[in-house]
Design a protein around this nucleic acid. Structure first.
Lengths: 142, 142
DNA sequence: TTTGTTTTTTAGAATTATTCTAAATAAATT
DNA sequence: AATTTATTTAGAATAATTCTAAAAAACAAA
């Protein structure tokens, strides 16, 4: 299994201690905002600044190591899982969860493959299922 | 055909001059940020403030007259077309366009209808096709 | 190693979208 | 007309993100 250092280097970036720390934290959190990453790291890495967290996440995004998302609490989120997958977005808790449904992704990709959109070159397809999770789901039912 | 006043009232809101102006502007723009609405209206309606634009759009969202979106330039957008449809998001210009493809929407809805997600109650499905439009699309090809 | 060059990090200020607050206005109700 | 309630206004407050300029680290060349 690859080390974090190797993963970062294979994507064309220098594996600085800050980048390694941010990547490991993102792997642990799955989906997170820059703020959440900083919060987790401030104990083990007190000199790390928010500007660096943003810089590092930005460089990861450019290198394709993660993907940016935007949610309805108006914050940037980052997702370390870069393979094609669907997102569940819980409006009650402003949280993302991956929804691993290759069937749905394949279905939509196949559908769009046959149907070119004139004047538009597709980079990616983003399917987001918005709703309410768990306990809150019950409360809202009637 | 319904007047703006009627549309607003039928959704349970008082049809104030500000609300009428904002609604008409949204209809003209299709997708817009609060800022864009304010910009358009500041000539014909110089006393209208940004706080009011936000208040009005917020009340429209609650009443179901429009729908909020969030895009990768980190801004709130509003969409007057509330029926089920797909969005094209142009990353070059940070702009939304509707992509009216009932087939795709139906396909995804049907697929998900048979597959309940445990612990999650679905409110809506948001399909966004991200890419680059027109002139920019050509430039990026090789 | 030393030197020079480039990249990354840092701290804090600047920016900007959105929300909040409290007063003023308008609309609706009695 | 008087009173209550909802809406608008202006500007201040908040908060996420970006920018700036200096310091530190990494790298390359000699």
């Amino acid at each position: 299994m690859q080390t974090t250092k190797e993963i970062i280097q294979e994507n064309g970036l220098k594996a600085t201690p800050q980048r390694i720390a941010v990547y490991d934290t993102m792997k642990k959190l799955g989906h997170a905002s820059a703020d959440m990453v900083g919060e987790v790291l401030k104990e083990t890495y007190p000199t790390l600044t928010k500007a660096t967290v943003y810089n590092v996440l930005e460089s990861f995004d450019e290198a394709g190591l993660l993907v940016r998302r935007y949610s309805s609490n108006n914050k940037m989120y980052f997702d370390v899982n870069t393979y094609d997958h669907v997102h569940l977005y819980d409006t009650a808790k402003s949280r993302y969860k991956d929804y691993d449904d290759p069937g749905l992704v394949a279905l939509v990709n196949k559908y769009l493959a046959n149907r070119k959109i004139p004047g538009f070159s597709i980079k990616k397809i983003d399917i987001q299922i918005v709703g309410i999770a768990d306990a809150e789901a019950k409360k809202q039912m009637n």
